[in-house]
């Protein structure tokens, strides 16, 4: 029998204590530039399965501290899935009721997880993408002031979770970072981690990757219906980011598959972020890129992303929210 030194019990008292401190792994085998290493941070290891557990916990605990959320109160949130799932987990443990406004074209696994943790799902039109969910939730929040509307797109506790958690973890585990690459959704990860990294070393570059979301949002009547997350404007995201690049569904899926060849089972938005990291690797001489994997692959098995013909899956992804 192996020798074990027993000092004291090392067991979490709540599943919420397991949020954060996610592992990082070197995936330089995929780097097209031998002078550039690539390290990926696996946020799918969070108990709710995504980076959004951090945001959910941060927003709910901030609201509790500020007296904006009272015991047993109902929470309302627009989400394309992961934030809702994270909030459903935290709400279940802490005893809140949660209503999520969810575009009706997200993968069925996302909906199943939300329902499993007791959230009520309210459908918004898939053709309007996340924009439609945000619009509907804002209208509902106005009609129901008794609900707590934490609103991840406008809540500074979202980037704060990354400024205080994700960012310091990256520097602790990979102090030689030169470039940070992550997907742009609410912008919380990029703003929080990005600000922390720039304070750590102003030379670290922050690169954003986004899906061509506006291409498929056909509910948009004109550009004035566009949307920029209020936190992005408030924290001057345009100043913070060094580069922003768009990655389509085909590249996202191809790079998700490449990761699987290394034994890393990640969601499709990870493939998008990785495609951005690969472009970064091609454009710089040397360095160390840290890229965020927002979630694991479990919620996307039904999309056939790893098994079906690439063109068929790509077409399917155009009509499904995967980011």
């Amino acid at each position: 029998m192996a020798e074990i030194t027993m000092v004291s019990r090392r067991v979490a008292t709540s599943v919420l204590d397991l949020i954060g401190n996610t592992p990082m792994v070197d995936i330089s085998a995929l780097s097209p530039n031998r002078e550039v290493s690539i390290v990926i941070k696996l946020e799918g290891q969070n108990p709710g399965g995504s980076v959004k557990d951090r945001v959910a916990l941060s927003m709910i605990e901030s609201a509790e501290k500020e007296g904006l959320l009272l015991p047993g109160q109902t929470l309302l949130e627009p989400t394309s899935g992961n934030t809702g799932i994270g909030m459903a987990l935290v709400a279940r443990v802490k005893g809140y009721t949660l209503k999520v406004v969810l575009p009706d074209n997200v993968s069925p696994e996302r909906r199943a997880l939300l329902e499993l943790w007791g959230a009520e799902v309210i459908d918004s039109p898939g053709s309007e993408g996340s924009n439609g969910a945000v619009k509907m939730a804002r209208e509902m929040a106005e009609a129901h002031p008794e609900w707590a509307f934490l609103y991840q797109y406008g809540n500074l506790a979202n980037p704060r979770a990354h400024f205080e958690g994700t960012g310091p973890e990256i520097v602790r585990d990979c102090p030689d970072i030169t470039h940070f690459v992550a997907g742009l959704g609410t912008s919380g990860t990029l703003l929080g981690v990005g600000r922390f990294l720039k304070e750590y070393n102003p030379d670290v570059e922050v690169w954003a990757v986004e899906p061509p979301a506006g291409e498929v949002v056909d509910g948009l009547r004109n550009l004035d219906d566009g949307y920029i997350p209020p936190i992005f404007t408030e924290l001057n995201g345009e100043e913070l980011l060094d580069r922003k690049t768009v990655v389509g569904p085909k590249d996202s899926i191809l790079w998700t598959r490449k990761l699987a060849e290394l034994g890393i089972f990640a969601g499709i938005s990870t493939g998008a972020a990785l495609a951005g990291a690969i472009r970064c690797s091609q454009k710089i001489e040397s360095g160390c890129i840290v890229v965020i994997s927002p979630d694991g692959g479990w919620k996307y098995l039904s999309t056939g992303a790893w098994t079906d013909d690439i063109d068929v899956v790509t077409e399917r992804a155009r009509n499904t929210i995967y980011f």
């Binding site: 899935g81 924009n131 990860t189 899906p211 949002v217 920029i228 927002p294 929210i321 995967y322 980011f323």
Partner: peptide
């Protein structure tokens, strides 16, 4: 050159 409207992104 591609033009795209700024819309609310997903949430990873």
């Amino acid at each position: 050159v591609s033009i795209l409207p700024a819309v609310a992104g997903g949430d990873g």
